[in-house]
């Protein structure tokens, strides 16, 4: 298909989205990622029955924990598609990139820069 999707996305492969832990998502933001999204199978088609449903709950939990400390929860999202839907994958990648562009860089980066400027 030779589809294009934004090059700023780094893919981390997991055997099932049920493997994705709350800390994996939280650490990504903590270490400065502007956003992180989980792409799982369509709901109801999980090979392990509820891996993607667990991932959805964890994503919502992380969004809530980020909102609590003043970081936009929308930097973390969950998308669902089947493995045959290449064009949808590219479309979601573009949509997420757009979403993050609108939100701007991770606010922690600005805080880190201010800290560095002070120590210089």
């Amino acid at each position: 298909m030779r589809l294009n999707y934004p090059a700023n996305i780094k893919i981390i492969r997991v055997p099932c989205t049920g493997k994705v832990d709350v800390m994996h998502l939280l650490r990504a933001i903590q270490k400065g990622a502007d956003g992180v999204y989980v792409v799982g199978c369509i709901e109801g088609t999980c090979h392990y029955n509820e891996g993607n449903l667990r991932a959805k709950e964890r994503v919502n939990y992380v969004r809530m924990r980020l909102e609590e400390i003043g970081i936009e929860g929308d930097r973390v999202r969950m998308y669902n598609l089947s493995s045959g839907e290449g064009p949808t994958f590219a479309a979601y990648a573009k949509e997420m990139t757009e979403n993050i562009r609108n939100l701007g860089p991770n606010p922690l980066k600005k805080a880190r820069k201010a800290e560095q400027d002070r120590s210089d």
Binding site: M23, L26, Q30, G70, I71, P107, L108, A111
Partner: peptide, 9 residues
Amino acid sequence: AQLDMARRL
């Protein structure tokens, strides 16, 4: 992780 981020902000 939350406290670290909150205080950095």
